[in-house]
Design a protein around this nucleic acid. Structure first.
Lengths: 208, 208
DNA sequence: AGGCTAGTGACAGTCGCTGACAATTGACAA
DNA sequence: TTGTCAATTGTCAGCGACTGTCACTAGCCT
């Protein structure tokens, strides 16, 4: 029971988002102007900026959704799990249900193409890393709360999350450089790399 | 035995850099225009862009130097050390000799003020994280070479560096939020946090 | 039906940044 | 010294991201 106005706004936003991602992933991020996006949807440039604070925000609108789900998933993990277990399970669980969640907004395939584009576009990579830092901060707070610690007094929550996040970034990069751009591929890579944290911190890196 | 032209260029670049950092740290990064910097030095805006690719490059010119030294330090570490030992020692060694290295270009105090500004300026933080990612990549290659591994086949070098880098970012953040902005403070924080990696990855976070 | 207001377009302006061209200034040989 | 060449710089024009302003239109509500 929503008003016509709201439906119209929703549709405009969705059209802008989809057009933006489509243009970004085909033509490239830098080579896509805001005017291009606005024109593709048939609105003025000014209207684009009323829906998105900038190109960047449009580029990460879906990613926002995904990360929000991840934070929620961590929060929902049973208290019996250790922090790292909670992170890991929340993550794999997130991959499992990602398709349905994303598909509500844009085709998953478009999201994955965008995800790859981020790695190869310096401006987007920078934005992504900064946003990840923000998400990591929130997760550190969740973990600290789970364990009854003060996140500002005890560095362990932040460090654990930073380590986890670091591995995820390596994973993303490797995935985007590979040839299998499926969800299964990134899921497999994720677990494989998380298993390598222990060995990586060990002194002896005997060739495998 | 350098020509007058070269000396003049050197002085212009130095003046631009110093003016930029001074303005950034007093007025703020976003609130400083390139015209401001150029005018402070008495050159045209176009000339600024002939010395620096953009505001960002000026902001990180000193940091470039510092990171370059760090990479070199890692490369110079004795082969007997484990990868993590090498990183840690290169880092603390870097702090020890930072003043002399930086002071050749700008006052250390200015550099440290800039370093703090990065944490509180989203645009700079994003740029910093992207640049750090680049540095981490280079270090991963150095470590892989040290251990005779293929950095693209074995994920351990990248993971180890990502973990190390993650801890460093947490350290930087905490330092910039604290009250002691001395080099000693950041050095102490660095070693303290690195010692927390083990405990942070452990399951039980019993309140201290 | 008519007033109210959210949403939009049109316009002007700022700032980062780039290309092109002309003017200047140091380098170097005659 | 002077003239030539090349490097450095300033000026100007223009693009793209983004913002403020204001008038206008279209949905909402009585």
């Amino acid at each position: 029971m929503e008003t016509l106005r709201e439906r119209k706004k929703q549709r405009t936003r969705e059209a802008l988002l989809r057009a933006a991602l489509e243009l970004f992933t085909t033509r490239g991020y830098e080579r896509t102007t805001v005017d291009d996006i606005a024109e593709a949807v048939g609105v003025s440039q000014r209207t684009f900026f009323r829906y998105f604070a900038g190109k960047e925000e449009a580029a990460f609108a879906v990613q926002d959704l995904v990360e929000e789900r991840f934070v929620a998933a961590v929060r929902a993990r049973p208290a019996g799990e250790t922090p790292l277990e909670a992170l890991r399970h929340a993550l794999t669980e997130g991959w499992d249900t990602l398709s349905e969640a994303v598909e509500d907004v844009v085709p998953v395939e478009l999201y994955l193409r965008m995800y790859r584009l981020v790695e190869s576009t310096p401006a987007l990579l920078a934005a992504h890393l900064r946003r990840s830092a923000g998400t990591e901060d929130r997760i550190a707070r969740v973990l600290a709360a789970r364990e009854g610690l003060d996140v500002d007094a005890d560095p362990r929550p932040r460090i654990a999350v930073a380590v986890f996040g670091g591995v995820m970034r390596v994973t993303e990069r490797q995935w985007s450089l590979g040839e299998d751009f499926s969800l299964d591929a990134i899921r497999a890579l994720t677990t494989a790399y998380l298993d390598q944290v222990g060995p990586a911190l060990t002194g002896d890196w005997r060739p495998v």
